[in-house]
């Protein structure tokens, strides 16, 4: 097998594959923006974060293991994990961490990276929710709950099922409506143009994203891979 077909990972064990290096750099750049972000390196793997998390029982990778995997050079598996989407941002881990690690903010960074890379299941509820929320804010300047829920239900499933799912929201909708707690129509802020200008400008200053290639499984392993 020609050497040129091999990844640098296979050639020099111990170094990270190209995709991981890209992800690592993107991740550490984001960590730089977090006040106290550098404390990430002080993790003692005590598991206080996992023990404090009200949702860790539903996660596939515990918050402690998130840091362990980052250290082991496996960010890609984190971007594919359920964990980053399960976090409810209650900050219990962040407040209790004896090393002062900003775990919630790290999970935000991973969530953004997963979206940047397009790594998440299609119609994935948390992504659709965030994306629908962003749409509402861009359009009106404020969140319009009715529009958000309608879009969310529609986008998380097929059109027909979506209609059905939207219908299932009706009991709560009427309950709220009867009590005067629903805005049937959206309310646009006066300065929506200003807000759009701010968003446009800020978007230009977002860091460029380098896309990684999909990991392709190979049958060639071990010594065979380096052609001996």
């Amino acid at each position: 097998m020609a050497v040129s077909n091999l990844t640098d990972h296979a050639l020099s064990p111990g170094t990270l594959p190209h995709s991981e290096r890209v992800l690592r750099k993107a991740f550490l750049d984001q960590v730089d923006d977090i006040p106290g972000g550098e404390k990430l390196r002080k993790c003692i793997q005590c598991g206080t974060c996992t023990g404090s998390c009200p949702l860790s029982y539903t996660m596939d990778v515990s918050p402690r293991e998130v840091i362990a995997r980052f250290r082991a050079g496996d960010i890609e598996s984190l971007l594919r994990s359920r964990t980053i989407w399960t976090c409810a941002s209650c900050y219990n881990c962040t407040v209790r961490c004896p090393a002062g690690i900003k775990i919630t903010d790290l999970l935000y960074a991973l969530k953004r990276m997963s979206m940047d890379q397009g790594i998440y299941p299609k119609r994935f509820p948390v992504y659709v929710f965030s994306e629908s929320f962003v749409k509402m804010v861009k359009r009106y300047g404020r969140n319009w709950e009715v529009g958000l829920m309608e879009r969310f239900q529609r986008r998380t499933t097929t059109p027909v099922l979506g209609l059905f799912k939207s219908m299932s929201m009706l009991p709560i909708f009427f309950k709220l409506f009867r009590r005067g707690r629903v805005n049937i129509f959206p309310k646009k802020i006066k300065g929506i143009r200003d807000l759009k200008r701010i968003i446009e400008k800020a978007e230009q200053m977002e860091r460029p994203v380098e896309r990684i290639e999909e990991k392709r499984p190979t049958r060639v392993v071990g010594y065979e891979a380096i052609g001996s």
Binding site: Q30, D33, S89, Y108, A109, K111, R112, M115, F129, S130, E131, F133, V134, M136, V137, G141, R142, N143, I189, K190, G191, D194, L195, I198, I199, K201, A202, E203, M205, E206
Partner: peptide
Amino acid sequence: EDWNCCGATAYMSVKETVSFAISAR
């Protein structure tokens, strides 16, 4: 006057600079 959405956790998980910018308005 004419406040806008803070961005909440939803915006924070999509775009970093933008989420801070709209909140900062």
